[in-house]
């Protein structure tokens, strides 16, 4: 990461100056532990402490879904969770979707279906979609729309995203039947 980029990232986060607290959790299968500002959000913990920049900050207030991650098996807006609330939990971010240097089926389908343009919403979309397919491997179109209604996209018009999630679900089902 370039220095300039690092500087810009730091701007969005204000330290309270309060004494640090220790937070330990499991992120993408790895145990992590940090001494942090007690008022830090989980989103800022991921981005600033762990340098996992895949998860995006849009509104910071639960409206846009760009910060969606999977916490304890459930999709949540990481901007509305304190890092301390996630202590002891298992967290999955977009960085944890692919395995062994290969993209996941879901990510491949997003690319194939042109389900992203600027890409800012994409990590959040992928995590909402991942949580959906985990709880419902055979979603109807309405289930997909419900799952991503909290993920705003200014570029794609949503239909390619819905299609990508559907085709990914089909491919995942085929793979699991084999």
């Amino acid at each position: 990461m370039c220095v300039e980029h690092e500087h810009k990232v730091a701007e969005t986060y204000l330290d309270s100056g309060l004494p640090r607290v220790r937070v330990s959790c499991t992120v993408n299968g790895e145990s992590v532990s940090r001494w942090i500002d007690p008022t830090m959000s989980l989103l800022h913990f991921l981005r600033h402490e762990l340098n996992l920049l895949g998860t995006k900050e849009g509104c910071g207030e639960g409206e846009c879904g760009a910060c969606t991650i999977i916490l304890g098996g459930k999709a949540v807006n990481s901007c509305l969770v304190l890092a301390q609330e996630a202590a002891g939990s298992r967290i999955l971010t977009v960085e944890g979707l692919g395995q062994g240097g290969r993209l996941s089926v879901l990510q491949e389908e997003f690319i194939k279906e042109d389900a992203l343009q600027c890409g800012f919403c994409t990590p959040g979309m992928l995590m909402s979609a991942r949580a959906l397919l985990d709880r419902n491997p055979e979603p109807e179109e309405e289930d997909i729309k419900e799952a991503i209604a909290g993920n705003l996209c200014r570029c794609t018009g949503y239909y390619p995203i819905i299609k990508a999630i559907r085709t990914a679900s089909e491919r995942e089902r085929e793979a699991s039947q084999r």
């Binding site: 639960g62 459930k74 807006n77 509305l80």
Partner: peptide, 9 residues
Amino acid sequence: LASYQLRNR
């Protein structure tokens, strides 16, 4: 109420 991920919290 709100979105699916918000309803999880």
